[in-house]
Computed example of a mutant assay.
Amino acid sequence: MSTVKLFKNAHLISPADLGTMDLLMAGSQIAALQPGFDTGSSNLPIEVIDASDCYLVPGFVDSLVHFIGGGGEGGFASRTPEMQLTDATLGGVTTAIGVLGTDATTRTLTNLLAKAHALETEGISTYCHTGSYEIPCRTLMGTITDDLILIDKFIGVGEIAISDFRSSQPTKDEIRKVAAAAKVGGILSGKAGLVSVHVGSGDSLLQPLWQAVEGTELKLSQFYPTHINRNEAVFQAGLEFAKAGGVIDFTTSTTSYDLQHGEVAAAAALARALAAGIPAMNLTLSSDGNASLPVYNDHGELVGLEVGQVQTLYQVARQAVLEYQVPLSDAITAITAAPAAILGLKQKGRIAAGMDADLVLLHKSDLTIRDVFAKGRQLVKNGKAIVKGTFEQ
């Protein structure tokens, strides 16, 4: 099969609406895009893909996935399973960032890094954060700064936990030191050096981040808080954070229990934040894929457990358009350009010459996924996986 592919008559959502164009993919990169591309004089074997009646959008960027599973809140038997390749690709995800969560004892950074390399070998782009919920952060090289400088796949730290009974109850000075180390590591390695922040339902909301920034050279934009749709109070605190220039993230995996107990549905949260005047580039969606979704009673006792799904990322973006009238370009921004920007992934999240050839074809009629390409390789065709992970049937 040719490594040069020409998408004909595609409606490009870059995520800006570029209208109908042809796109030329060469190897792992986008080579060119223009109306009516002429290949008549080319001697290259070119595979032509009819993209009529489809939107061509960037591959989706999932900024929070538990590659090696999570959980354990209900004991060893409640540890959730590892992510598989098609968990991502069937949902259009071509770039994913792996994290640890509550458990940094039986889930380790070495295991996380190995799984990231495995998923990359199988077909998608992967990165990781060093650390976990707890502060001081566990690292591989001894410090956060060393991890970011010396380990290519590590681009940030987290997800550190605040306002949550499962957090290590960090002080503002501890949060400052984590952010400072991440910043220096990012500067010296050419990475974002951001701090991914798990936000619980505690009364302190996002105040620990405001307090950490106050009176320092740190900026809100270095913190990337997630689960901002956890409840109405967290959502409102998130809007304040975003209006001050921060980027906030809504979690797409959920349970009926959470929705019945005050969680703001992610699609509704995106629509409401846009209506409140928050710029699309300050809003992202992430799946929290393969995380445990614990259900607690009023006494804090675990009574149930579900598993986050990577494919909810695309499902919620689609729902935002079809049910909440979010403009398609804004919904696509939340799962492409916006997360790529805050994560510092300069080759991801947009359709332009020279960018990585991560592309998704969506049927215009219902926004379902037709085809998925990652680094120029087709992984999904006509809605079915044509490439599977090593141990998938």
Rank of each mutant, 00 (worst) to 15 (best):
D17P: 08
S28T: 14
Q29E: 13
T39L: 13
N43Y: 08
D50C: 12
D50H: 08
S52K: 13
V57D: 00
S63N: 02
I68N: 08
G71Q: 12
G74M: 14
R79D: 02
M83L: 15
T89L: 07
K115H: 14
T121Q: 13
Y127G: 03
T130F: 05
T130C: 12
E134D: 12
R138E: 05
G142Y: 06
I144V: 15
D146A: 15
L148R: 03
F154E: 01
G156Q: 05
G158M: 08
I160P: 00
I160A: 00
E174S: 07
G185S: 08
G193K: 08
V195W: 09
H198W: 13
V199L: 02
Q211D: 15
V213E: 10
L218C: 09
K219D: 12
K219H: 12
A237P: 01
L239C: 10
E240Q: 13
K243L: 11
G246M: 05
V247P: 01
T251H: 04
Q260G: 15
A267Q: 01
A271K: 11
L283I: 08
N290T: 05
L305C: 13
Q309I: 10
T312H: 04
L313G: 00
E323M: 10
A331P: 00
A334S: 11
G344I: 04
K348T: 03
A353S: 15
D356I: 07
L359T: 10
T368H: 03
F373W: 15
K375R: 15
I386N: 12
F391Y: 14
E392F: 12
E392Y: 10
